[in-house]
Amino acid sequence: MSDDDLVFRALADPTRRFLLDMLFARDGRTLGELEAEVEMTRFGVAKHLRVLEDAGLVLSRRSGREKLHFLNPVPIRLIHDRWIDKYSERSAAALADLKRELELSAMMSTTDTTEGSTVIQVYQVYIKASPQAIWDAITKPEWTVKFGYQVPVDYDLRPGGAFRGMASEAMKEFGAPDVMVDGEVIEAEPPRRLVQTWRALFVGEGFTRLTYEIEEDGNGVCKLTVTHDVTGAPQTAAQTAGRIPENGGGWNQILSDLKTLLETGEPLYR
Rank of each mutant, 00 (worst) to 15 (best):
S2I: 01
S2Y: 04
D4T: 14
D5C: 08
L6N: 07
F8T: 08
R9G: 15
L11S: 01
R16M: 01
F18H: 14
M22T: 12
F24D: 14
A25R: 14
R26W: 02
R26V: 11
G28F: 09
L31Y: 04
G32R: 10
E35I: 00
A36Q: 09
V38T: 14
E39C: 01
R42A: 08
K47H: 07
K47A: 08
V51G: 02
V51F: 01
L52H: 05
G56W: 06
L57M: 08
V58F: 02
V58G: 04
L59F: 03
S60C: 09
S60G: 08
S60Y: 05
R61I: 08
R62Q: 12
E66L: 15
K67N: 09
H69Q: 02
H69C: 00
L78W: 03
D81F: 03
D81C: 10
W83N: 07
L95C: 05
D97Y: 13
L98S: 04
K99E: 13
E101P: 00
E101F: 11
L102E: 14
E103N: 15
L104P: 02
D112R: 12
T113S: 15
T114R: 14
V119C: 09
V119T: 14
V122K: 12
Y123N: 11
Y123M: 10
Q124I: 00
I127Y: 03
I127R: 09
K128P: 05
S130C: 06
S130A: 12
S130P: 09
P131I: 06
P131N: 07
Q132G: 12
I134A: 03
I138H: 13
I138Y: 13
K140Q: 15
P141K: 02
E142W: 07
K146C: 09
G148E: 02
Q150L: 11
V153F: 02
D154G: 07
D156N: 11
P159D: 06
F163H: 02
R164V: 10
A167F: 06
A167D: 05
K172M: 14
E173I: 00
E173M: 15
F174C: 00
G175S: 08
A176N: 05
P177I: 03
P177S: 03
V179Q: 06
M180P: 01
V181F: 11
D182I: 00
G183Y: 04
G183V: 05
E184Q: 13
A188K: 03
P190K: 07
P191Q: 07
P191N: 07
R192D: 03
R192T: 08
V195N: 01
T197M: 10
L201I: 07
F202R: 02
F202Q: 15
G204I: 05
E205Y: 02
E205W: 08
R209K: 14
R209G: 00
D217L: 02
G218P: 09
N219M: 11
C222G: 03
T225K: 11
T225I: 10
T227E: 12
D229K: 05
D229Y: 02
V230I: 14
T231M: 05
G232Y: 08
A233L: 00
P234S: 07
P234H: 12
I244L: 14
P245L: 11
P245K: 06
E246V: 08
N247L: 15
G248I: 10
G249C: 06
G250K: 02
G250R: 06
Q253L: 13
K259V: 04
T264D: 03
Y269K: 08
